[in-house]
Design a binder for these strands. Sequence first.
DNA 1: ACCTGAACACCGTTCAAGT
DNA 2: ACCTGAACACCGTTCAAGT
Lengths: 209, 209
Amino acid sequence: MRLMAARKPERKRKNAYHHGNLRQALLDQAVQTIGRQGVEALTLRGVGANLRVSRTALYRHFADKRALLAAVATEGFRTLRTALLSAWDGAGRGQPGFEAMGLAYVRFAIANPAYYRVMFGGFVDQSSAHPELVAEARAAFQVLVDSIVEQQHLGLVRNDDPERLSRYVWAVVHGVAMLAIDGQLPPGHPAEQLAALAIGRLRTGIGVG
Amino acid sequence: MRLMAARKPERKRKNAYHHGNLRQALLDQAVQTIGRQGVEALTLRGVGANLRVSRTALYRHFADKRALLAAVATEGFRTLRTALLSAWDGAGRGQPGFEAMGLAYVRFAIANPAYYRVMFGGFVDQSSAHPELVAEARAAFQVLVDSIVEQQHLGLVRNDDPERLSRYVWAVVHGVAMLAIDGQLPPGHPAEQLAALAIGRLRTGIGVG
DNA sequence: ACCTGAACACCGTTCAAGT
DNA sequence: ACCTGAACACCGTTCAAGT
C-alpha cells in the first residue's frame, strides 16, 4: 500500500487545453523517435501518446504523416546547411574549407542517420507539395555552389558550370554518406576513412598523376 | 441479365493445391507491385490476393516481410551485376569499358528505381541475417574491383588499394543514382548528363588541369 | 481555435485446423 | 507438405462532438 494522497481525477494540466507549442513538440518528438528507432517505427499514435495528447491532435498542425516527415526533412536541411557553413568558414574557406565541408557533410549523416534518411530516402515528395522544404534543400546546396565559385576564382577548381560541378560533388559525398549509414561499408574500414579518400580523389581523380 | 452458364462453385484449380512455384510467383508479384507503386505500397495481403492465394501462404516461403524484401534485393544485385559485366565487356574493357559500366549502373537505378531503393534504402538489414544477399551484393561489387585492378595493370588508374578505390567509385555512382531517383536533380538537367560528367570527373578530378 | 473518443478500413503475424 | 480462415494487436485517417 502506497502512502499517497488520493489522486486527482486524472491529470492536472490546468486547463487541459493549449499545450504551449504543440507543433514544435510534435516535431521534436518525431525527430526523437526516428533518431532512436528509425523512420519505420514512427507512428502518429505513438507520437501523440508520448506527448499525452490525443491521437488526432496532430492533424491540427500537419495535414498527414507525410507532411510531418516533410517538416522533419526541412529541419534536417536547415541543420545541415548550418554545419556546412560553419565548417567552410571555420577552416578558412579555400581548399581546407572545402575539405572540412565535405567531412562535415558525411559526419552530419553519420551522426543523424535516420534524419538523413528522411531527407533523402524518398519518404517525402520533393516536388511542389512542400515549398519550404524545397527552399531549405536549395539553400543547403547553395552553400556548396558558393564555395565552388569562390574556389574557381582562386584557381582551385576548373571552370566548368559551378552548379553542375556542385551536383557532382554533392553526389560524391551523398554516396559516401548513404553507403556509410546503410552498413554497406565493411567493418574496419570506417566511413570517415572513405570520406577522406573521397574528398582527396574529388580534386585530382583516380587516374594516374 | 447476362447470358452465361451457371458458374462453377468458385474457382476451378484442379486440386487447389500446389501452385507450381509459389515462392517465385510471390517474388515476381512483389517486384511488380514495388515497380509500379513503390516499396511503401507493398502489402503481403495484396501480394496474396493478386496470386489468388491466402494471406498467410507467403509464410511457408518467407519468414516475414523483411525476408521477402531481402529476396527482392538479392535478385536486384544479381541483375545489377549482370548489367555491369555486360557493359564492361561489351565496351571492350579498359577506359571505355569503365565508362560504359558507370553509365550502366546509373541506368539500372533509373530503370528500376523501386528495386534500387529496396537494395539500398535500409529496408533490409544488410548484416548476417541474409547471407545470400550479402554474397550477391559482394559479387556485384567485385565486378567493379576487378575492373579497377585491370585498369591499374594498364596504367589507367593510380596504384591505390583497389578495394578502397572501388568503394569510392561506387559511392560516386551510387550518389548520382540516388539523387536521380529521388527527384533531387532539377528538371532539364537529366540524370544521364550528371552521370556522364561524374564519370569524366572521376578520372581527372575537379581541380585545375 | 484546439482538442477529444469512437469508428472505419486497413496492416503484419500467429495459430489451430483442414487436405 | 502446403494451404486455409479466424483472430490479435496494431496502423493512418475521418468525423461528430466537446470546451
